[in-house]
């Protein structure tokens, strides 16, 4: 190839690159629109009066007096209790499943003994189980081991209503089914930890328990952030277990997802303004967590 052609080549390519950059950003812009449109449309709709929902374009903000926060007032009224209930089991279940996952990953990754791998396989496979395969036994279990009877003194001596026994069951359920994914997340982090450091700590005379307490746990902080955020989102968003264990949105202990799923159906027609407002109210905690810790969430998802 002579120098001449290579020069024209380069200028051609430069022109290409300019056109190519423009195309690139247009494509990315369209994708952003694709990913945000349903959310944007939902948001503007949630702020409209019933009439405005019907007669303005679904993607335009409310105009000419079509603005109303009445939907949010109703949504909060209906969902507030459910959100409280959700927090009540999501927070302890998140903390405990993360802690147990960290324990298990430590015992299976940074300590060395035979036959670890088969046990590990069981943990990993647990991540992929379709929950339908355990639902009926779960219902049977909770009808045999009756938490409401076991904790009778709570309902007897405190103002907490007996339906809240369901939330205890939900907590235990979410811990148990959260352990596999938490273990896998922590394990991927622990395998990158220096084995020489673990050996140094053992030679320094620290027991396995002390090594966890003084070395591994403090160094796990970044991973705890990832796991806690991921787990909280998963548990808060769950509908299936709530449906099976609490069963009805009319229960005083119903979590927010159960309430929301029933929100549209319980009303005459499809009140989209209210539905959208309800969706945003129910999603608020996860949205806040996501906006504040998006990077940690992405990391949890990617591993």
């Amino acid at each position: 190839m002579s120098t001449d052609t290579s020069r024209t080549d380069r200028t051609d390519r430069l022109a290409d690159i300019d056109g190519y950059r423009v195309g690139l950003y247009v494509a990315i812009g369209l994708l952003v629109a694709f990913f945000l449109t349903p959310i944007e449309s939902g948001f503007v709709t949630s702020l409209k009066t019933d009439a405005a929902v019907g007669n303005t374009a679904p993607y335009l903000p409310p105009l000419f007096g079509g603005f109303s926060i009445a939907n949010y007032v109703t949504a909060v009224e209906v969902l507030a209790r459910g959100m409280g209930n959700s927090l009540l089991f999501a927070v302890p279940a998140t903390l405990l499943s993360a802690l147990l996952g960290s324990f298990a990953a430590y015992g299976l990754t940074l300590v060395d003994w035979k036959y670890q791998v088969p046990i590990l396989v069981l943990f990993v496979a647990g991540v992929f189980i379709p929950y339908q395969a355990v639902l009926v036994p779960l219902s049977r279990l909770y009808s045999i081991v009756n938490v409401a009877d076991l904790l009778w003194f709570v309902w007897a001596y405190t103002p907490v209503s007996v339906q809240y026994a369901d939330l205890v069951e939900l907590t235990v359920t979410h811990i148990a089914y959260g352990i596999p994914i938490c273990t896998v997340l922590f394990r991927s982090y622990y395998t990158s930890m220096s084995t020489e450091m673990m050996e140094a700590a053992r030679l320094d005379g620290a027991s396995i328990r002390r090594v966890y307490r003084r070395i591994v746990f403090p160094l796990s902080t970044p991973m705890f952030a990832v796991v806690l955020i991921y787990q909280f989102t998963q548990i808060w968003n769950d509908l299936l277990f709530a449906l099976v264990i609490v069963s009805t949105g009319s229960s005083p202990a119903a979590p927010v997802t159960l309430k929301l799923a029933g929100l549209g159906a319980s009303l005459e027609g499809l009140d989209f303004g209210l539905r959208m407002a309800g969706a945003f109210v129910a999603a608020l905690p996860t949205l806040l967590v996501y906006i504040a810790f998006g990077d940690e969430f992405a990391e949890g998802v990617a591993s």
Binding site: L31, V32, F35, L36, T37, P38, I39, S41, G42, T45, V53, G54, P58, Y59, T233, W236, N237, D238, L239, T257, L260, A261, G264, L270, F272, R275, M276, G278, A279, F280, A282, A283, T286, L287, V289, Y290, G294, D295, F297, A298, V301
Partner: peptide, 29 residues
Amino acid sequence: RTIYLLPMSLSFVVTAQFWLWMYDYNNGI
């Protein structure tokens, strides 16, 4: 990345509401 992952942080219950509205016969986008 944050924008593309945003839908994933939402509950199925929430996204179902959004898409019900997106697919609405009369007013859906």
